[in-house]
Amino acid sequence: MFQAKVINIQKYSIHDGPGIRTTVFLKGCPLKCWWCHNPESQNFGRELLFYDERCVGCGKCVKRCPNDAISIINGLAITDERCVLCGNCVDFCVNNAREIVGENMSTTEVFDQIIKDEMFYEESSGGITFSGGEPLMHPDFLLEILKKCKSRDIHVAIDTSGYAPWDNFEKIIDYVDLFLYDLKHMDEDKHLKYMGVSNDLVFENLKKLSSFGKEIYIRMPLIHNINDYDKNIMSCIEFLKNIKFSQLNILPYHKMGKDKYRRLNMKTYMEELESPSDERILEIKKMFEDSGIKVKIGG
């Protein structure tokens, strides 16, 4: 039985594929996108989220820490590098100012949560979506749980950046109904700058996936002055002419999740970024539609 670190199991999700869905967020991603709104999904290990606005400096966590890793500084309980993420401080924080993200769960434990909402999937033509992070970083876990889903005829979607070994795709492809596939930038240098990795593997995997005849929704985040200019849009259109897919979802940038960076003590660029104007979003939508591409704004 395989395990993976799970960040969250979100019930009644309506933006991660058709119908009412349960979305399972797995931890770990090889990309470091500037606009990532789930920064807690990037690291493969457990992490501590600290909600400084909730902390009253009562010191209960200080007393409970076995490694003396917490000190009261300027009225806040600050954690240092001696923390081993044991969770004692979380258990004794009366204001829920501390949270460990990344719980090891087995395929059976996750599946037990999934089937609780099986009735909603059937009535809405929904199902289960695996997201992250990058779910394809956990191919053995996915394979085991996807087989369970298919045994109950549950619709399965995989939300992926496309940046994973093709072997990982091949391992699970027979058990997936829909791929939600990100295209973030067509320019390799900019992809390296804003995502931290090349886009070659993303393009190569999408071409291969397209040849399998699986349903694919292309998802393109739109960030002003990053990827919303004509040259990038036209490059995307030219590339997609050779890809078989059902629709393109354009996702205007939002700042949701920016507070998580402070809670994780991570650097963020989110404040520097903006969404394109409503007018520009509609212009981009028309550019795709004029090329014969079915477009939806939003998830």
Rank of each mutant, 00 (worst) to 15 (best):
E134M: 06
C65N: 03
G132A: 10
K63L: 11
M195N: 13
A164I: 02
F288Q: 08
S291Q: 12
D182C: 04
T23R: 05
A164S: 15
F120V: 04
Y229P: 01
T107L: 03
H138P: 03
Y229S: 11
D91F: 09
T108N: 14
L201N: 08
E279D: 14
N104C: 00
N199C: 11
S161M: 04
G75I: 13
Y51C: 00
M287K: 15
C33N: 04
F92Y: 15
D228Y: 09
H185V: 09
E103L: 07
L48E: 04
Y217T: 14
G75M: 10
G19W: 06
L49P: 01
E170W: 04
E47D: 07
F203K: 15
I78H: 01
V62A: 07
G162Y: 02
K150F: 10
V295H: 13
P66L: 13
E204L: 03
L180Y: 02
R263Q: 15
V295W: 10
I73C: 02
D167W: 02
R219H: 07
K150W: 12
I297F: 11
D200P: 00
E122M: 09
I233P: 02
P139G: 02
F120Y: 15
K255M: 04
D117L: 09
F111H: 11
F111D: 13
K296F: 13
Y253Q: 02
P165D: 13
A157F: 07
Q42K: 08
L136A: 04
V90D: 00
K32M: 11
G132F: 11
G257Q: 10
N199Y: 08
L31H: 05
N232W: 09
S106W: 07
G257A: 05
E144W: 06
I72P: 02
I218P: 08
D91T: 10
V62M: 10
C83R: 07
C236Q: 08
C149W: 08
I100K: 07
D52E: 15
E204H: 12
D177C: 02
D174Y: 08
G102L: 03
G299T: 06
N199D: 10
E289F: 10
M266T: 01
G59V: 10
L192F: 05
G75S: 13
T79I: 14
R21P: 11
C65Q: 03
F50Q: 05
E188W: 00
L264Y: 00
S151G: 02
K193V: 02
K267A: 05
V24N: 08
N96T: 01
P252T: 05
T107S: 15
G132E: 12
N199K: 10
Y181W: 09
R219I: 04
F130N: 13
S246Y: 09
L178K: 12
F203M: 14
N205I: 08
V202M: 04
L183H: 08
V202G: 05
A77G: 01
N168T: 05
L143Q: 11
S235M: 15
H191N: 11
K190D: 07
D16K: 12
D91Q: 12
A97R: 07
P165Q: 06
L31C: 05
K286Q: 13
I100T: 05
S210E: 06
K60P: 00
H155G: 06
L26F: 08
E103G: 01
K267C: 01
K241R: 15
F130S: 10
L85N: 12
T160Y: 11
Y253H: 00
C93Q: 06
T108H: 07
K260L: 06
N95W: 03
A97M: 03
V90I: 11
